[in-house]
Nucleic acid binder design. Sequence first.
DNA 1: TCTGGGGTCCTAGGACCC
DNA 2: TCTGGGGTCCTAGGACCC
Length: 411
Amino acid sequence: MERRILLVDCDAFFVQVARLEDPEGAGRAPLLIVGGSATGRGVVTSASYEARAFGVRSAMPTAHALRLCPDATVVGVPRGAVGRRSREVRAALEDLAPVVQAASVDEFYLDLTGTERLFRGETLEATAWRIREAVLRRTGISVSLGGGTRRVIAKLAASFAKPAGVHVVPPGGEQAFLNPLKLSALPGVGPSLVERLEKRGLRTVEDALGVQEEWLQRWFGQRRGAWLYRRVRGVDESRVDPHERRKSISSERTFFEDINDDAELERRLMKLATSLGPILRDKGFRARTVTVKLRDHDFTTRQHSRTVPEPIESNAAIVEVGRALLDDLRAQRRVPARLIGIGLSGLVSAGEAHQLGLFDEPVAGESDRDRDVSRVVDALAKRFGDDAVLPGRLVRGPEATGRDGSGRTDG
DNA sequence: TCTGGGGTCCTAGGACCC
DNA sequence: TCTGGGGTCCTAGGACCC
């Protein structure tokens, strides 16, 4: 059956959220930039369409953006609100379509294949407009929709729909739609591949259509060549999967000023680690691999990772592995750092781990008590707020818990 | 201009096992 | 004593996306 896929893309999502959350401030600034501070090391996360007219783009240093658009108002990323509004949009879509997959905070794929009768022969374009209005009414968020027979076509179509519009590529019209596009417009073709393509004189989809698969493979590698050959023909078998599972969790921070002190770096790492732990446990996961990342003052980015035999979940275990990895990284190159990060991957659900019989023996590195302590910390944080429990202090065992506990929770 | 933070996927080499 | 080849896991790095 011909598939009917829509990509729902929120228009300048962070800008919209900032305005909804602060109607008197951000809501009244046509020239709005959401992102890092102007004086610090921030970049633009999202800019209003009015600001984009001045050349402001996301990922651009905020300082640069302000040079292009001096009258712009800069506000921070409304972190919590972004997640909340994203879930609202998703919930609205789940009431409108049978299969919904979140591709990011502000992008959702819908598979409407087989809904023709349910929607009484409504065209995909009419359905898309109806969904746009319903989402706007229910969540206050303006979205654009792209439609087609495949995910990649829907995705590309959405860029023609923005802002606040709809663009549907009819079945059979895929190749005509793709032909004039620049190769750099294709999802998965980034700056690096574009440079190599241009060396071969390839700029547009039509250029690439004239090249045999074996030549693409010779130039760009077996897999990449085959992938590109299919992509310029709009071939995309990937499904809209509503049950996609998270594969990693991570957190990183750029410092206001570079840090060269080992103890201070360790403190920053502990803080990140103890903020990650609750997220891991809340989702019922354990992790097998811990990764620590350092970005040096010269922007050299290095990371070390370690996979432990049994999956871990306690702050104590995460911190222990993370500290060892940081020591290695610092021993290798001890220069001022501008960023530190920690990540957890190799995620297994705690229940799954039990079923596999992985915990018949006591786990090296993580005791039952470690896990219990972490759960107590989570419960306290849930009841009294995160500030009730200072991260990095409760990770050492019952003595520390008893001693530090009283002074900490009365704040 | 001076470079955020959250992710996914791919590659390549080495270790280890059969 | 020297040797092949395949599979899997782990690690580091890089490309890419929003």
